[in-house]
Design a protein around this nucleic acid. Structure first.
Length: 384
DNA sequence: AAAACGTGGGA
DNA sequence: TTCCCAAGTTT
């Protein structure tokens, strides 16, 4: 473990200067780098959590187009915020953003807090985002540590310890804190991340064009790509689920998942998760009884779709029910609506539901790209 | 403190 | 196919 004193102030200062001038020349032209608005920067940082830049860009543009100010976000319906988040994943971010916007309007006179301490109190803002907003939007000498920074710093220091442990992480924050002191802290933090994203990449780092290659201990050791050390992830557990299109007078039944938990707040077709070795149709009937107090009539199997979450592998069996008995009583369901297929397709919904509606042919105005995906998915359909 | 929490791209 | 992982946060 390198102690901070092993690297001289002069060396730190050189690395800092070289990174900053490299950033000035080679930084990518990203939408959130065109603004100084703390609100816009906050939105971008929230969207960028565990999410690629290329994925975020269109969502960022749409979001700020629709909600240009914190007041407008605070006044919005949560469902509209979810709607702009559909397909981006980690939906608690949308919920927390909405909640934090209301806190900012009600308790901070509509101005984003400009200190890490106060930013950290807002929902959805952890140590990384607080450091990012404080340094980038408010020019504070606050460090930040994300996956890029972990990789760049551990390679630079040739530090081969498990980076998932608290002591190692704490030390990385101290290094980041030492490095960020000086002019343009926001740009420096972005430079560190930019280097990790475009040069000091997880695989095949481009050391030959790296502005700090000469002082990089990992490169001197010869195998920087083997750093950082991190534990292997457990593979996603497989589960089976059921979903059913129940139609009445040309409209289908949609239910909304409770806030919190997987796909919290998202709309979906009624259904649920099967128990191990449970008969599929029996499981569907059980789920509909437990969640809505409904007894389904004849079931028609329409096929199945598969969906991979970060921690679960889902096989979802899709049905149509031709009739049901009982009056709807919701259990563990936030809301329900009878909707035309077109309206249902517009709801905030997760990947499995999008695939299920595509399989059923209930999606409206599909893009050519997603239509291709749907057709590929439909090959697994039981129907001709 | 480990696990939950989405999605899509690349090797 | 499978695995990794991408500007993390919450419980």
């Amino acid at each position: 473990m390198p102690s901070l004193s092993e690297i001289s102030d002069a060396r730190v200062s050189t690395v800092r200067r070289r990174l900053l001038s490299w950033y000035d020349e080679y930084r990518r032209d990203l939408p959130w780098r065109k603004t100084k608005d703390p609100f816009a920067i906050w939105i971008s940082e929230s969207m960028l959590q565990q999410t690629r830049v290329d994925t975020v860009i269109p969502y960022y543009e749409r979001f700020l187009d629709r909600f240009p100010t914190v007041d407008q976000l605070a006044d919005a319906e949560l469902e509209d915020v979810y709607g702009l988040w559909t397909g981006l994943g980690y939906y608690s971010r949308a919920r927390n953003l909405h909640s934090a916007a209301q806190t900012i309007v009600n308790e901070h006179a509509g101005q984003l807090p400009n200190t890490v301490k106060d930013l950290r109190k807002l929902k959805g803002i952890g140590p990384y985002t607080a450091g990012a907003v404080a340094s980038i939007a408010f020019n504070k000498e606050e460090p930040l540590v994300d996956g890029n920074v972990i990789r760049v710093l551990t390679r630079w220091l040739d530090w081969r310890e498990d980076v998932s442990t608290k002591p190692v992480l704490d030390t990385l924050w101290k290094w980041a804190g030492r490095l960020v002191k000086g002019e343009r802290p926001g740009d420096f933090n972005q430079a560190l991340m930019e280097l990790g994203a475009t040069v000091c990449t997880p695989r095949a780092p481009r050391c030959l064009i790296c502005p700090i290659q000469r002082s990089c201990l990992g490169r001197q050791a010869g195998d920087p790509e083997s750093i950082p050390f991190k534990p292997k992830k457990k593979r996603a557990q497989s589960v089976q689920g059921v979903a059913v299109w129940i139609e009445r007078k040309g409209k289908g039944l949609a239910v909304r998942r409770p806030e919190g938990g997987l796909l919290g707040g998202m709309w979906e077709l009624p259904g649920g998760t099967l128990e191990t070795n449970e008969n599929i149709e029996a499981g569907l009937r059980r789920c509909l009884h437990e969640s809505l107090s409904l007894k389904l009539g004849h079931l028609k199997a329409m096929g199945q779709i598969e969906h991979l979450f970060s921690h679960r592998r889902l096989k979802l069996h899709i049905f149509q029910a031709h009739a049901f008995e009982g009056r709807i009583r919701r259990h563990e369901i936030a809301e329900h609506r009878w909707l035309s297929p077109e309206r249902m397709a517009e709801l905030p919904q997760g990947g499995p539901t999008r695939k299920a509606l595509a399989l059923l042919g209930k999606t409206s105005h599909e893009s050519p790209r997603s239509r291709l995906k749907s057709e590929r998915q439909n090959q697994k359909s039981l129907e001709p």
